[in-house]
Design a protein around this nucleic acid. Structure first.
Lengths: 207, 207
DNA sequence: GTCTATAAGAAGATAGAC
DNA sequence: GTCTATCTTCTTATAGAC
């Protein structure tokens, strides 16, 4: 990896641990293995490094959600979704979502950084809410609304179903961000959550 | 309010907005209406101010949960709890919890501060998880487990019911912390959440 | 592109007068 | 208890050699 990218990488690691204000350019330089003044050949200021991280993350996020929509809401046939809605299918979807958020190196550090900077200005607030609340909830709600139209799930409010499905995942994720040693426990909780969600929302076929 | 308390108050406000590392003692002093050196007659360092805030919050939290338990799990009769489990009772409990977390001046600022400092050290991580995850979940689970023993709610895992009840409240709360203008919308969402929770978990009386 | 040296200023904290 | 003046250290950033 070239130096310019390595600077972003190490800076993100440090920002995610300590927060922007508690990280000094000298620390970033040390992590990269160069001296502080050399950083300024690559970025014009500390803020410039932060902005570059932000830009790269927004790019990644857009590419990722675009990829999701290619075989997502547009291209998904109802049959695809119905196939995925067995209890085991839901468990897989939930654990996949959870594991991606928790283990993708970049996504994970970026979420922690954004957590620490979320009140700093409205752009960061909006970005956080978009990525970790509104868009996941809308995505899930779309899927559940399709399932409600069929005979698979009870005809309840799909927005709330999405909240019931995703909010526990989000909460367990924040716990693991603070306590990585609780991942195993959280995965068990996650599976119990989804199986119960599935039982509770499954259409009771009468007769 | 005396100066010593006013320092804590203004410092907490600033820490909640910007995070500890981005607040300078001069800003705290200015907010209080004195000059920076005067602060040092009251607290021996900036860190000392932070620690004092932490100590006061832990005291408040302990007193508050102690008060809850006085007419809480120990003293609650089953009848009390059963009475509160009508759909409207649950809505009231949820909105009460939400509004308390969101509107209590001190609780709200402290939560934001802790949000920004949660990765700084393990004491802060543990405190956050205790106050905003483990203890609310345990408290709710206790109540739901009693309700499951009766014929009020379906006999499902009470820990997961607590997660289904509380995680959405927590998530809406974090949204409102970032976007106070979304409070009305979030309150509506909260009510829809609890009414659906109630429908979904209500024991279907056969016959 | 990296280094050493250094400027320029900010930030935490102290001394001592009032 | 509050102030002004000051100290020290830290921190960002630049200059200029290699």
């Amino acid at each position: 990896m070239n130096t310019k990218k390595r600077i972003l990488d190490e800076a993100l690691t440090l920002f995610a641990q300590k927060g922007y204000g508690n990280v000094y350019v000298g620390q970033i330089a040390e992590a990269v293995g160069i001296k502080a003044p050399s950083l300024y050949k690559h970025y014009k200021s500390k803020q410039d490094i932060f902005n570059a991280i932000l830009d790269e993350m927004k790019d990644r996020y857009d590419r990722q959600t675009a990829a999701l929509n290619m075989n997502g809401s547009d291209a998904y046939t109802d049959a695809d979704i119905f196939g995925a809605v067995s209890e085991d299918g839901l468990v897989e979807m939930g654990i996949g979502l959870f594991s991606y958020f928790l283990h993708d190196e970049y996504v994970c550090r970026f979420r922690k950084m954004l957590t620490l900077e979320q009140f700093h200005n409205s752009e960061l607030s909006r970005l956080y809410t978009k990525q970790y609340a509104d868009e996941p909830l809308n995505y899930q709600a779309t899927i559940f609304s399709i399932l409600c139209r069929g005979e698979v799930l009870k005809k309840e409010d799909a927005d709330i179903m999405a909240l019931h499905f995703f909010a526990p995942i989000y909460m367990l994720l924040t716990i693991c961000d603070r306590h990585p040693e609780r991942e195993t426990e959280s995965l068990k909780m996650l599976e119990r959550h989804i199986r119960q969600f599935s039982r509770i929302y499954k259409e009771t076929t009468r007769g």
